[in-house]
Design a protein around this nucleic acid. Structure first.
Lengths: 203, 203
DNA sequence: GGTGTTATGGTTCGATCGCACCACAAAACG
DNA sequence: CGTTTTGTGGTGCGATCGAACCATAACACC
């Protein structure tokens, strides 16, 4: 029956099984047999599409990252043509929070991968760039806010951006553990945002 | 040769082996045989002192938590008899940062345990209390700072405390990944502290 | 319509896993 | 001094792991 199948779709189907297992029981539960059963394919297919187990884990992560990036872009685009800098920063930070099943699972997968990130050089390279890019993005938005008069000149954009991103990441953890509701998490973010974005746009 | 051995020391010796393996390769590398080899005891001893593998993981975590608590108390006591509220909050937050090998490894162990925390009810109970207690502690210190005039009355103590703890936790992650130096991490914390603790003590 | 390539299922192997079980040495106790 | 308790090593079992291997059905191409 072959040759009419969409390889990307197959890889995605398998990758999603990896995510589900990783969020459910950590990386140690991501065995070839379990993935095969979860994805409802034969174990042989995993080898065919990804090769070894390490390559499977890496491949599944890359697909996840590509997904996350696209979804973030979509959500930011949904803010409209001329959003305020505050709304943009808010959108970026909220992307880090486990506000829906998709984002929750994504962060669980990242946590499951964390230790390998520190050890395996191949994985480390994948992780190195993203977070710093986020900080720079937020810092740039705050500085634009200063240009537009939405943010006081007294604010240290870089320092505040770094702490905002770090804070969102930390809050994410508490939400995952059930120590805080998503609503409280958003409220904490907004509390900091209203502190930083005090001035009214000069326009 | 038995009966003159210190059980607590033996358990600690084994627990330390668990930590080392967990920080090195995640929980999936913490097998009974590996732990036995790392702790330089026979595999049989693990069963004798901890029982099943799950109990071993849980026991090792409890020892780690007890350690962390005692070390934190020591470090806070080292601040002197009448430290300022700002210094106390700083001490608490810095405890969350991987500033030395001990704290770095401790946080790596926590990350390795994170997924099981969400799944296994026995582990979940252990984790549930600690972080919230930290937030309450910091919030209390900030409110004391308001009483003493170190902190403006306009500050929302609870919200700031939550964001400080979350921020410290998020910064910890970036330091572990090598994206930020420990010095930068401390500087970010201090930047927020000097914002909150503006007023001079009324004496 | 053969022929080669692509996609898939099934099976097997050696290693390793958690854990139960057995043997025994040293101390404690009567 | 004998017996019980406590601490330790070794070994074996059933299950499962990752990965290699074999077979073959469906399509592409000529």
């Amino acid at each position: 029956m072959p040759r009419q199948v969409d390889h990307n779709q197959r890889r995605r189907q398998i990758a999603e099984a990896v995510w589900r297992l990783a969020t459910r029981g950590g990386l140690e539960d991501v065995t070839l047999r379990q993935v095969a059963a979860e994805a409802k394919v034969s174990a042989r297919l995993l080898q065919y599409y990804f090769g070894t187990r390490d390559q499977l884990l890496l491949g599944a992560l890359e697909i996840l990252n590509a997904d996350a990036e696209q979804r973030a872009r979509e959500r930011l685009a949904a803010l409209g043509q001329t959003p305020s800098m505050q709304a943009l920063v808010r959108g970026v930070l909220l992307e880090l929070l486990p506000l829906d099943e998709e984002r929750r699972n994504r962060h669980l997968v990242y946590i499951a991968y964390f230790i390998p990130f520190l050890v395996d050089p191949a994985l480390a390279k994948v992780a190195r760039e993203a977070p710093h890019a986020l900080e720079d993005l937020v810092a740039g938005l705050i500085m634009q806010g200063q240009e537009l008069g939405e943010v006081s000149r007294d604010i240290d954009a870089a320092a505040e951006a770094a702490f905002l991103v770090a804070g969102a990441e930390g809050i994410q953890t508490t939400v995952l553990l059930g120590q805080r509701t998503p609503e409280d998490a958003v409220a904490l973010i907004d509390h900091q945002l209203t502190r930083i974005f005090t001035a009214t746009p000069r326009n």
